[in-house]
Design a protein around this nucleic acid. Structure first.
Length: 151
DNA sequence: CGTGTTTGACCCGCGC
DNA sequence: GCGCGGGTCAAACACG
């Protein structure tokens, strides 16, 4: 799909500050050229402002005794979260990575379902959450979590 | 046959 | 202590 415009998200995000918790403070209008998403046409894209503290709110590790028994349920500490609001008809935006859908959930406050995606690459802890905006059905909110271990 | 998608069930943290 | 909300996994199915 979009290979010429493909870029490393890690490299791209270096320009931004995204090493904090995700907190929607406001939607910042960004240029589609700065996004990994390359649609057939340039769409108005908004990037969620990421704010938070590198230490304090998320310092205490949530090590639950019951969780230790659970295999495969690893709780990583404060992962990078970046939210994007994009105008698109479909929620499946190709950003150059392969995603595997692993869950769908309905949001009570919204008639739209929330889709959960995960990177198909082994060892890639990156997760993606796609949800359609309730106020703006024409827009989709894509939330990226973690960083790719590969390009 | 392999991969990805689908859907329901299950688990965890928190609030009351 | 139980219920709710949100998130994840897993089995089965569909598709190439």
């Amino acid at each position: 799909m979009s290979s010429s415009n493909q870029r490393v998200d890690g490299e791209q995000y270096s320009n931004f500050e995204f090493s904090e918790f995700l907190k929607f403070d406001e939607w910042i209008e960004e240029d589609d050229s700065s996004l990994p998403i390359s649609d057939s046409s340039h769409n108005p894209v908004y990037r969620a402002r990421v704010v938070g503290e590198s230490s304090g709110t998320i310092s205490p590790p949530e090590r639950r005794s019951g969780m230790e028994e659970r295999i495969g349920r690893e709780k990583k500490e404060a992962k990078e979260r970046v939210a994007f609001k994009t105008k698109s008809e479909v929620e499946i935006l190709d950003d150059g990575f392969k995603w595997r859908k692993y869950g769908k959930k309905m949001v009570k406050n919204s008639p739209n379902p929330r889709n959960y995606y995960r990177c198909s690459v082994d060892g890639c802890p990156v997760k993606k959450r796609v949800e359609r905006d309730k106020d703006d059905p024409d827009y989709v909110i894509t939330t990226y979590e973690g960083v790719h271990i590969h390009q």
